[in-house]
Design a protein around this nucleic acid. Structure first.
Length: 980
DNA sequence: ACAGAAGCTTA
DNA sequence: GTAAGCTTCTGTT
C-alpha cells in the first residue's frame, strides 16, 4: 500500500444490525431461512462497490475489506466487566444470518476480517492507522460515532445508504469538537447503549463546551475545581475515575496484532458467476438479475451455490412472509376547477383569467434560452427593455435562506415569458479546501450593477414581480435599494387559494399552473452535507436555475393577477397583503435586543434545577433512564412501576402527556410531578435559553426573526428562526425568559395588545346582544357568560363558575365540541354536552352563526372573514365524518381568527405613517397575533402610547365598522416581561 | 440524514 | 375543540 491508494473498510457488523432492523422480515421461500439482513447487506455492498470503483464520485478504491466483530468478549470486558453488559442476545432470526453474511462477503470477492478479543472498530482503527502511515487514504463505511475519532484529513467516513460523507468538518459540526477530541468527548458523555459510564448530567453539548474551555480531558480533570457551575463541577469531581475508565473503553486500539496487512486487501474484479451463485442460493431474484446484467453473467447457466447454515433454519419460517413494500403515492392534486364562468361572452375578468391560465399551461419552458449577462451594456439593454414592457420579474440568488445573513450572489430578470437573463455577481471558484476561493472572472462589478439595478427597482413606471418579495426586499434594502411598485406571486396565490393548496411556494405553483416542474434548488446547490451554497454553483447552471425562477414568476403573475379581479379579492391583496411586506421587512431588519447574560444565567439555573430533579427521579425509579424519552418513561412508569396507566398513543406507546402526569400527581404519586417539572425546565433550557443566543446577529447584536406571510390558513403570520411568537409567559419560571428581551439604551419597549379580540369579533359577526352590551360597558365577558348560563349574579361569583364559562367561550372560538370541552374541563362528555346545550339556549344567535358558517363552507368550499379574506376548506364535504367535523370546526374558527388577523394587519400597515405624522420615532419590532411590540425613546413613551392604541382600536375603519368597540392595553417597560 | 411522533411553548 | 414552530427521541434506508 502506497501514497495515492485508497482503502475502503466496511463496518460489517454495524451493517448487519442496521439492515436487520431497517428491513421487514424476509425469508427464503424454499425453506424459510431468514435473509433480510443478508439482502440489506448485499444491496449495500453492491451499490458501494459500484460507487467505489466509479471515478466521478471521488477517489476510487484500490483496497477493500469488510471487518466483523469476532465475538462479544473483548479486552474491554477485562477492563470493565459491565461493558456492553446491557446488550441483549441478538434476535433469533438474525443469528443464522451472521454466517450467511460472511459467505456473502466472500461471494463479492472481498476479504473478510475478524479477530478474537477485538472489536471490528479496533481492526478498523489499526488498518486506518496503517493506511495513513503509508500515505494512503482510507474511507470507513459506517456512520457509527464510535469511529469518528479516526477521522482525519486522510481518513473519512461514508454511509452509502444515505450517501453521506463524514470528514473533519462534519465531525466538528455534529459534535462541536474535532475528531481527535472525540475520545475525550465520549469519555465525558458515556454511552448508555454500550454501558459506558461517563459523567451523569453531561451530554455532548456540555462536554464540547468543557473541552473547548479546558483544551483536553486531562486538563479538564486536573482543573475541574475551576468549573463555575457547582452541580457540574461536583459531578465531574465525583466521577473522575469513571471518566478515565470510560476513556480507556472508548479509545480504539490502533495496534491490534493483525495477521493480514492492507496489501492483502487489494481490490479484485468481481467474479460474476460466483456472486450470482450465492445470490441465487439466497433466492434474491431482483438483485440476482441486476448483478447478472451488470457483470455480463448468464444467470440461467449458473447453479445456486450450496451454503451451509450453522443454525437450524427450518425453525423459522412458517410465520414469515415476504413483505413487498408498496408505495403507490396517490397523485390527487390536479388543479382545481376555477371559480369562473366560462360560458360568459365577452371579456369579463373571469374569462380573461381562464384564458391566461389555459395559455400558460401550454407554453413550454426552455432553460437553455436564458442569457448570462457579463457586460454592462447588455445589462442596460435589459433594463431598457423592462422600461419598455413596464413589467419585470426578478429573483435574487444569495448565500443563505436568512435574508439578514445572505450575501448577494446574482439576480435574474424576465421581461417576457421565455426571455430571462441572469447577472452573476458573487460566484466563487476553487472553494472548499482552499480558503474560500476567489471570484470567478468575468463577473460584473457589484457597485456598478447595483446602481443600474437601483434605477430599475425604484422606477415608478416598472412593476417589479417577485415570489416572496419580502425576502428580496430585506436583501436589497441592505444594499440601499428599495423596490416599488411591486407584486408578489406568493401573496397572490395566498389570497386566491388560501387553504386550497399545499402551500404557495414557487415550485408548487409552477407545477399547478404552468404544468412545469422547475429545476430543484437542491439539484444545483446540493442538499444536506453536499450543500455547496449558491456562490459555488457554476454560472451556466446558475443561469438555468435563476433564469427559470424569474421566467416562472412572470408567467405565474400573468395567471394569478387576473384572477384577483375575477374573484373579487383585489382589496384583500392590496390592503392586507401587499403593503404589509415592506412593513414586515423593516421589522425583521430592526430585530430585537436580547440580553445574552440573562439567558446564560438562566440556562445555568435551569441546568442545576433540572439536574437536581433528575437525581430525585433516578432515586425514585432506581435506574438512570433517559427522562426525555417518552418511550422509556412510559415503560418504567406504567410497565415496571405499575402506575395506573392511562391511555396509549396511536403508535401503541403509553401516553406520558403533562395532563396525564398531572392527574397522577393529583392522586398522590410523587414521580409524575417531578417529571412534569423536569420537562418544563428542559424545555425552557433547550428551546429558549440555549437556542436564542445562537440567533443573535453578529453585526447588529440583535435577534431578527422571520415572519412568514403566507404560512397559515387563517391569515395569521407565523414567526420562525427563531419563533418569537411562543416566548413563555404563562408562569413565573418561563416569564424570566421574557426579561432577556430588552430595549436599547435610552429606550423602552411598548407592548400593545388587543383585549379579547376574537370574542369581540364573535359578538360582532354573530350579532349577540348580551355580548355586545357587555363589551360596550367594559364588563367581564366570562362572568357575564356564566351569569347568563347558570343564572348566578356576577357579584361574588365562584371562580370555578367563571372558569367554566371562560372555557366555553374559548370553545366557541375553536368550533366547540363536547369532546374537547370535556377534556378541557376534566368533566364527562355528557356534562360538557349539557353545558353546550345550555349555552346555545341562552345564546341562540351563536348557534345560528355556527350553523350558517358550516352551511356556507359546505356550499362554497370556503368561508370569508369580515374583510373578505377567503379561507378554503376543500375537505369540508369529505365522506369521513371525523374529517368533515374537523373542517367544520376549523372553518368556524377561521372566520374569527382570520378577522382578528386582518384587523391587526390593517393596524400594522397604518402604524408607521401615523407615528411619522405625529413626529414620533417609535419602531415596531414584533407581532404576536394580537400584540405589537415597539421600541421607543424613553422621552417619547407618553406620546406614543395613545397613537398606537388609536390606530389599533380603529383599524377596522373605514372599511368596516364593528358593532363592538376594540380595546387595546399598552404598557412600557425596559423588558418584555414587564411591558406585557 | 431525515421524517414522524410526542411533547411543549404561544395566541 | 382553532392556529402555529421547535426540540428530543425513535425508527428507518
Amino acid at each position: 500500500m502506497k501514497k495515492g491508494d485508497h482503502l475502503f473498510l466496511v463496518d460489517g457488523s454495524g451493517y448487519i444490525f442496521r439492515a436487520y432492523h431497517a428491513l421487514p422480515p424476509l425469508a427464503r421461500k424454499s425453506d424459510g431461512l431468514p435473509t433480510n439482513a443478508v439482502l440489506g447487506f448485499c444491496n449495500m455492498v453492491w451499490k458501494l462497490m459500484r460507487d467505489a470503483r466509479n471515478t466521478d464520485v471521488g477517489h476510487p478504491a484500490t483496497h477493500f475489506a469488510v471487518i466483523f466483530d469476532y465475538s462479544s468478549k473483548t479486552f474491554r470486558n477485562d477492563l470493565y466487566p459491565e461493558y456492553k453488559a446491557n446488550r441483549s442476545a441478538p434476535p433469533e432470526d438474525l443469528v443464522p444470518q451472521f454466517g450467511l453474511i460472511r459467505h456473502a462477503t466472500h461471494a463479492f470477492n472481498l476479504p473478510c476480517v475478524e479477530m478474537e478479543g477485538y472489536e471490528a472498530d479496533d481492526l478498523i482503527a489499526t488498518y486506518c492507522h496503517m493506511a495513513e502511515e503509508a500515505g494512503a487514504d482510507a474511507t470507513i463505511i459506517s456512520s457509527d460515532k464510535d469511529l469518528m475519532q479516526l477521522v482525519s484529513p486522510s481518513v473519512s467516513m461514508y454511509d452509502p445508504m444515505k450517501d453521506h460523507q463524514i470528514g473533519v468538518p462534519e465531525v466538528v459540526e455534529r459534535w462541536g469538537v474535532p475528531p481527535e477530541k472525540m475520545i475525550d468527548l465520549q469519555a465525558l458523555t458515556g454511552d448508555s447503549v454500550d454501558n459506558i459510564p461517563g459523567v451523569p448530567g453531561i451530554g455532548p453539548k456540555t462536554a464540547a463546551l468543557l473541552l473547548e474551555q479546558f483544551g483536553d480531558l486531562d486538563t479538564l480533570l486536573a482543573r475541574a475545581g475551576e468549573i463555575k457551575q457547582p452541580k457540574r463541577r461536583q459531578s465531574i469531581l465525583e466521577n473522575t475515575d469513571k471518566v478515565r475508565l470510560s476513556r480507556q473503553l472508548v479509545t480504539l486500539k490502533r495496534d491490534v496484532p493483525i495477521t493480514e496487512t492492507p496489501d492483502d486487501f487489494l481490490l479484485e474484479p468481481s467474479n460474476g458467476p460466483k456472486l450470482v451463485a450465492f445470490l441465487k442460493a439466497m433466492e434474491f431474484t431482483t438483485l440476482t438479475r441486476r448483478v447478472a446484467e451488470a457483470t455480463g453473467t448468464d444467470a440461467a447457466q449458473v447453479e445456486a451455490a450450496f451454503i451451509p447454515v450453522e443454525h437450524g433454519a427450518s425453525a423459522h419460517g412458517p410465520d414469515m412472509e415476504i413483505v413487498s413494500s408498496q408505495t403507490d403515492d396517490k397523485v390527487q392534486d390536479t388543479p382545481e376547477k376555477q371559480d369562473t364562468d366560462e360560458k360568459d361572452e365577452g371579456d369579463t375578468p373571469a374569462r380573461l383569467a381562464a384564458q391566461r391560465a389555459r395559455a400558460a399551461a401550454t407554453e413550454k419552458i426552455d432553460v437553455e434560452a436564458y442569457i448570462t449577462i457579463t457586460d454592462l451594456q447588455t445589462l442596460k439593454d435589459w433594463i431598457d427593455e423592462a422600461f419598455e414592457t413596464g413589467i419585470v420579474a426578478f429573483d435574487t440568488e444569495t448565500t443563505s435562506l436568512d435574508p439578514m445573513q445572505a450575501e448577494l450572489v446574482g439576480f435574474s430578470l424576465a421581461t417576457r415569458p421565455g426571455r430571462a437573463a441572469y447577472v452573476p455577481l458573487g460566484h466563487r471558484q476553487g472553494a472548499g479546501d482552499l480558503l474560500g476561493g476567489g471570484l470567478v472572472e468575468g463577473q460584473l462589478p457589484m457597485r456598478e450593477v447595483l446602481a443600474q439595478l437601483k434605477r430599475l427597482m425604484e422606477a415608478p413606471s416598472v412593476l417589479k414581480v417577485a415570489q416572496n418579495l419580502k425576502y428580496d426586499l430585506v436583501v436589497m434594502n441592505r444594499h440601499g435599494i428599495d423596490i416599488a411598485p411591486y407584486d408578489d406571486t406568493m401573496l397572490l396565490s395566498y389570497v386566491l387559494d388560501g387553504g386550497a393548496a399545499r402551500g404557495h411556494g414557487m415550485d408548487f405553483l409552477s407545477e399547478k399552473w404552468l404544468g412545469h416542474k422547475p429545476i430543484a434548488f437542491g439539484d444545483v446547490a446540493g442538499t444536506g452535507k453536499k450543500f455547496i451554497g449558491f456562490e459555488n454553483v457554476a454560472i451556466d447552471k446558475a443561469t438555468h436555475y435563476a433564469g427559470e425562477d424569474a421566467d416562472v414568476t412572470l408567467r405565474l403573475w400573468q395567471v394569478l393577477k387576473p384572477r384577483l379581479a375575477a374573484t373579487g379579492l383585489v382589496s384583500v391583496y392590496e390592503r392586507l397583503e401587499r403593503p404589509l411586506a415592506p412593513v414586515l421587512a423593516r421589522m425583521e431588519q430592526r430585530g430585537i435586543l436580547v440580553d445574552r447574560q440573562i439567558l446564560s444565567r438562566l440556562s445555568g439555573e435551569l441546568a442545576q434545577n433540572a439536574a437536581a430533579i433528575e437525581e430525585e427521579i433516578y432515586a425514585l425509579i432506581g435506574e438512570r433512564i433517559n427522562i426525555g424519552s417518552p418511550k422509556q418513561l412510559g415503560d418504567i412508569l406504567f410497565g415496571r412501576m405499575g402506575l395506573p396507566g392511562g391511555s396509549k398513543t396511536k403508535t401503541g406507546q403509553w401516553s406520558t402527556s403533562a395532563q396525564l402526569l398531572e392527574d397522577l400527581a393529583a392522586e398522590g404519586h410523587e414521580l409524575p410531578r417531578k417529571i412534569v417539572d423536569w420537562r418544563q425546565l428542559a424545555k425552557l433550557k433547550s428551546t429558549y435559553t440555549d437556542a436564542l443566543p445562537g440567533f443573535i446577529h453578529p453585526e447588529t447584536g440583535r435577534v431578527h426573526t422571520n415572519f412568514a406571510m403566507a404560512a397559515t390558513t387563517t391569515g395569521r403570520l407565523s414567526s420562525s428562526d427563531p419563533n418569537l411568537q411562543n416566548i413563555p409567559v404563562r408562569n413565573a419560571e418561563g416569564r424570566k425568559i421574557r426579561t432577556a428581551f430588552i430595549a436599547d439604551k435610552g429606550h423602552k419597549l411598548i407592548s400593545a395588545d388587543y383585549s379579547q379580540i376574537e370574542l369581540r369579533v364573535l359578538a360582532h359577526v354573530a350579532d349577540i346582544a348580551q355580548l355586545k352590551q357587555a363589551f360596550a360597558e367594559g364588563a367581564d365577558i366570562h362572568a357575564i357568560t356564566a351569569s347568563e348560563m347558570f343564572g348566578v349574579p356576577v357579584e361574588n361569583m365562584p371562580s370555578e363558575t367563571r372558569r367554566r364559562a371562560k372555557a366555553i367561550n374559548f370553545g366557541i372560538i375553536y368550533g366547540i365540541s363536547a369532546f374537547g370541552l370535556a377534556n378541557q374541563l376534566s368533566i364527562s362528555r355528557e356534562e360538557a354536552g349539557a353545558y353546550i346545550k345550555k349555552y346555545f339556549e341562552r345564546f341562540p344567535g351563536i348557534r345560528d352563526y355556527i350553523e350558517e358558517t358550516k352551511a356556507t363552507a359546505r356550499e362554497l368550499g370556503y368561508v370569508e372573514t369580515v374583510f373578505g379574506r377567503r379561507i378554503h376548506y376543500p375537505e369540508i364535504r369529505a365522506p369521513n365524518a371525523a374529517v368533515r367535523a374537523f373542517n367544520e370546526r376549523a372553518s368556524i374558527n377561521a372566520r374569527l381568527q382570520g378577522t382578528a388577523a386582518d384587523i391587526i394587519r390593517r393596524a400594522m400597515v397604518r402604524i408607521e405613517p401615523a407615528l411619522e405624522k405625529a413626529g414620533l420615532s417609535a419602531r415596531m419590532l414584533l407581532q404576536v397575533h394580537d400584540e405589537l411590540i415597539f421600541e421607543v425613546a424613553e422621552d417619547e413613551v407618553e406620546a406614543t402610547i395613545p397613537v398606537i392604541c388609536n390606530v389599533m382600536e380603529n383599524a377596522p375603519m373605514p372599511a368596516r365598522t364593528l358593532s363592538v368597540p376594540l380595546k387595546v392595553d399598552a404598557r412600557a417597560a425596559h423588558n418584555w416581561d414587564e411591558a406585557h
